[in-house]
């Protein structure tokens, strides 16, 4: 599904290298988790994959189902099936949540040469999906993320994911700012989307999210590289012992 090889990335404005050779392969239907201390490059990896400005890839490659991602515009990556659930979902005053979602869904369908969804069909689908995420009609009408609580914003990200039905979902610290109940709700939303044709890359600081979204593979990232890969137990090890032991062992 996703294949990242020897990815080196630096900030466009500075010489500072942030990713120093990331290798990562995510198979279809699998959930991979990336854990790591602050500043290890986790969020940068998610931004670079989704095509945000400000980063320069100096070496390596990233492909989604064999297609070179790094050559595509952000909207083309989305249409190709990539989705990033933002750590800090953006507020967009003046754009209704529903209008935004319908525009996005239809833009992707159009880019893939599929028919656009009619207003009625779209409404039917979104109502059902919103309900399972406890998103009420009011939240759908309001401007995108404006005045949403932290939990509402993250639920809205998952709703977008559910509507866009991507193949490769990257969740960037989706657990940050969530209380226990909200984390459960968001996790259920994610788990409902688990499918043998859909893969997940879950970026998190903490093991607790992984209690709800059970990963197949856990990676530890430090200083711009994946330094250790293991099964779900690796997350527990981090939770108990912190990163220091693992990093000492690697170094």
């Amino acid at each position: 599904m996703l294949e990242i090889k020897n990815l080196h990335v630096k900030l466009e404005e500075e010489e500072k290298e942030i990713l120093k050779g990331v290798d990562l392969t995510v198979e279809p239907g699998k959930v991979h988790a990336i854990m790591g201390p602050n500043g290890s490059g986790k969020s940068t990896l998610s931004y670079v994959l989704s095509g945000r400005d400000g980063y320069e890839v100096t070496a390596g490659s990233a492909a989604l189902e064999g297609e070179d991602l790094l050559d595509l515009e952000p909207e083309e990556r989305a249409a190709a099936g990539l989705f990033l659930a933002f750590q800090y979902p953006v507020e967009i005053p003046g754009v209704g949540n529903m209008t935004f979602l319908r525009t996005a869904v239809n833009a992707q369908r159009k880019a893939r040469g599929e028919d656009e969804l009619s207003a009625a069909d779209f409404l039917k689908v979104i109502r059902a999906k919103a309900k399972s995420l406890k998103i009420d009609a009011d939240m759908l009408k309001r401007p995108v993320n404006v005045g949403f609580s932290g939990g509402e914003k993250k639920r809205n990200e998952i709703l977008q994911m559910a509507m866009l039905e991507p193949k490769m979902c990257i969740l960037d610290e989706t657990d940050s700012g969530l209380d226990v109940d909200a984390m459960k709700l968001v996790s259920e939303g994610v788990n409902a989307l688990r499918d043998e044709g859909r893969s997940f890359l879950v970026i998190t600081h903490y093991q607790r999210l992984l209690d709800h979204i059970k990963p197949d593979v856990v990676h530890i990232m430090a200083d711009g590289r994946i330094v250790k890969t293991g099964g779900p137990d690796l997350a527990l090890e981090v939770e108990h012992n912190g990163y220091a032991d693992i990093l000492a062992e690697v170094n």
């Binding site: 967009i92 003046g94 754009v95 996005a104 833009a107």
Partner: peptide, 29 residues
């Protein structure tokens, strides 16, 4: 707003459409 523009594009909305959406949103008030 570049951040908002990227957010819309990351959802599959082409740059021009996203810019138009943000422009109309700006005028909405």
């Amino acid at each position: 707003d570049e951040t908002a523009l990227f957010y819309l594009r990351s959802r599959g909305v082409p740059t021009k459409d996203a810019t138009d959406m943000l422009t109309l949103a700006f005028l909405a008030e």
